[in-house]
Design a binder for these strands. Structure first.
Length: 555
RNA sequence: GUGCCAGUAGCUCAGGGGAUAGAGCAACGGCCUUCUAAGCCGUGUGUCGGAGGUUCGAUUCCUCUCUGGCGCACCA
């Protein structure tokens, strides 16, 4: 893997220390603890230095020394460390490093050369990932609850791409099964109610207005259809309404900045017999049995609480069976190295048993990762808003986007980790969309563009050694963090790392702007600062691109 | 009953064994004859839900407990 930025620097420093440590250990006839991993971090108070390690404190016991003394010996043994100007022992035994300005100068050159590709990781062996998200039932419009999953999933996919993976974004359409039957019955009832207002709704019907509208629209589009035979009418009505919902989901997601590589239909699994194939595969591994007329998966053999039905006694496969077939299709047939799904936390019970079904088929369950996202608690002022598609009282994504700018919505949903519960106040979102932090970040970018419009480069050679103000150093240092933040966001499946990074970088640009003027009597300094803001613009654009947020040239 | 997620400033949230616990919003005071003031600089705020334990050191890890959200169907 090709690293760049501070990640690489940290590895260099760690390497120097590791050599020194090994030397020290052998001199003393000691062995390092097997589980020891050297850590490098940025000190909370940067006046201590640019980087810091707790190595001496961690190893004090093994070396039977006090941490500070060990730290001193370690530094003495390490001698000169590349790109480190000063190293010192502080506090209880931290070793602090001051990074040389040359590192920042070289990185600045690197950013200008690579532009938006700076921070992109290149894997030794290219790997592919399938990121599946939203995957809402096509029985109605997308609502705000789906918006969080959309924002998270899209950004996770972009993070994978930045981290060097081949990425495919996918939407799984549940266009089969019980809820589609209910959907059809609800449509039929609404259709019948056009002539007979007393026609009863089925149990657990979909009660949204959209169903009423669709029934009426279908009748207008198909003159004479009220005379069709009931089964045929429900079929046509249902598939027409499903397709219209799917088209609408396409449209609103596209408006939301999400374009999928594939919309995968659950019905295709049934049509192509893939569910039977999946069950056959489980059967080959002796993980299936029959009881009470149903086909069961021996889930209890795989650390699950109970066995699971794959095919009901009425012959219809369960959602679970279809999901197993779907994931075998991703990992075996299509051969993705990794499958990552964003699910609402209400599905968490399904995670383990799906992984175990894959394990039962002989696959490594680690190839499937599920990001569980806590559900959005939607409020309007003090009032709780329900998100039930069945009840039809959800606020749609379309409505949300007509009130709050796309950039603001995507940013908001990526400011906290998927794991945290989130309260989304509609009134507040509309009212506060003006002081949404996204504008702060975008403003930094617009500001850079404005500077570059107004101040021309001169012929003088830029002299980066003149970029010595602490705001300049902080800005450069932050830019070198980019690839590391991408890796952290990936490792933790946490897009909020990227929003926070973009915000911090913007903040440093603003601070720099207020302290240092780009326009300067010294042309070597002016050109250096032009390069600095150009580079910052590149990194900001890359970060915003990952977030799927626009980087405006002016505001 | 049992499993998962969370509880940090007035509000929304970061941090996740280490050096004085951080941002934004809200409040107050400064900074535009000079590259965008949607900005910058400064001021205040905390029983890190509670109780034990492990450790040189716990807001962070472990156990218990309280509160809130969500699961535990031949629904999806």
């Amino acid at each position: 893997m090709i690293l760049n930025g501070k990640l690489e620097l940290e590895n260099k420093i760690k390497k120097s220390l590791a050599v020194a440590l090994a030397k020290l250990a052998s001199e003393k006839g000691l062995e390092l603890p097997a589980d020891f991993v050297m850590e490098m971090e940025v000190p909370k108070d940067t006046s201590f230095g640019d980087l810091s390690t707790n190595t001496a404190m961690k190893l004090a016991k093994a070396f039977r020394m006090n941490p500070r003394a060990l730290a001193e010996e370690l530094l003495a043994s390490a001698g000169d460390i590349p790109y480190v100007d000063e190293s010192s022992v502080a506090g209880p035994g931290f070793i602090n490093f001051k990074v040389s300005h040359r590192f920042l100068e070289e990185e600045l050159t690197e950013i200008l050369a690579k532009k938006e590709d700076y921070g992109t990781l290149i894997l030794d062996e290219p790997k592919s990932v399938n990121v599946e998200f939203v995957s809402a039932n096509p029985t109605g419009p997308l609502h705000i609850g789906n918006a969080r999953g959309g924002a998270i999933g899209d950004v996770i996919a972009n993070i994978f791409r930045k981290a060097g993976w081949n990425v495919s974004k996918e939407f799984y359409l549940n266009d089969a099964g019980n809820q589609v039957v209910k959907f059809g019955e609800s449509l039929y009832a609404r259709f019948m109610q056009i002539d007979d207002p007393d026609y009863p709704m089925p149990e657990n019907a979909y009660l949204g207005d959209d169903i009423v509208r669709q029934a009426r629209a279908f009748r207008e589009l198909n003159p004479g259809c009220e005379k069709w035979e009931k089964g045929q009418l429900i079929d046509k009505l249902c598939s027409w309404a499903l397709q219209s919902n799917i088209d609408n989901m396409h449209a609103v997601l596209s408006r939301y900045g999400i374009d999928y590589d594939l919309w995968f239909r659950e019905s295709s699994l049934h049509e192509q017999g893939l569910i039977n194939d999946a069950i056959a595969m489980l059967r080959e591994h002796d993980a299936v049995y029959e009881k009470d007329g149903a086909v069961w998966f021996r889930a209890t053999d795989f650390d699950c609480e109970k066995d699971e039905v794959l095919i009901r006694s009425n012959g219809i496969p369960t959602y679970y069976a279809a999901d197993i077939a779907y994931h075998l299709n991703k990992l075996v047939t299509r051969g993705f190295d990794q499958s990552v799904n964003v699910w609402g936390a209400d599905h968490h019970g399904h995670v383990h048993r799906l992984k175990m079904a894959l394990k039962a088929c002989g696959l490594d369950p680690g190839r499937l990762d599920i990001i569980l996202m806590q559900l959005v608690h939607l409020v309007r002022g003090n009032e709780s808003v329900r998100l039930s598609k069945r009840r039809g009282d959800a606020v749609t994504l379309d409505e949300l986007l007509s009130e709050v700018p796309v950039d603001a919505v995507r940013y908001i949903f990526n400011t906290s980790t998927p794991n945290s519960h989130m309260e989304f106040d509609l009134d507040l979102a509309v009212k506060q969309s003006n002081d949404n932090p996204v504008f702060y970040v975008q403003y930094a970018h617009a500001r850079i563009c404005s500077i570059l419009r107004n101040i021309p480069y001169t012929d003088a050679k830029a002299d980066y050694s003149l970029l010595t103000d602490k705001t300049e150093n902080a800005l450069m240092m932050k830019m070198t963090d980019f690839s590391q933040e991408v890796m952290k966001a990936l490792a933790e499946y946490d897009p909020s790392k990227i929003t926070k990074y973009a915000y911090d970088l913007a903040s440093m640009l603003h601070s720099f702007y207020n302290v240092c003027r780009v326009k300067n009597d010294d042309p070597a300094l002016q050109n250096a600062r032009l390069d600095l803001v150009t580079a910052c613009g590149c990194v900001l654009r890359s970060a915003l691109k990952i977030l799927g947020v626009t980087a405006p040239n002016e505001m």
